[in-house]
Amino acid sequence: MPSITREEVAHLARLARIELSDAELDHLAPQLDQIITLVGQVSQVAADDIPPTSHALPLTNVMREDENVPCLTPEQALSGAPAAEAQRFRVPRILEED
């Protein structure tokens, strides 16, 4: 039994907003199955009482003072925008057409 099915890969691709073609799914699903088998080896390690590490170093309480620093100009902010209108980022309709 594969560690991940083609349908699961398709679901994950939707969740990650990647419009995979059928051909890509055919190609990627078995590769991911192999990779997941590889990474699944972590489960062989007995680590129930081991604390997880989320950060490489144990730093805490890094904060800045509540002060303003110069912003980008609106021109700079919008300089990379695929589309802009009225000094705002123009994006496609958010809801699907009914």
């Binding site: 209108e85 000094q87 123009r90 994006v91 309709r93 009914d98």
Partner: peptide, 9 residues
């Protein structure tokens, strides 16, 4: 609903 596009600030 029914918007053709949106503008983001």
């Amino acid at each position: 609903q029914g918007a053709s596009h949106s503008l983001v600030d």
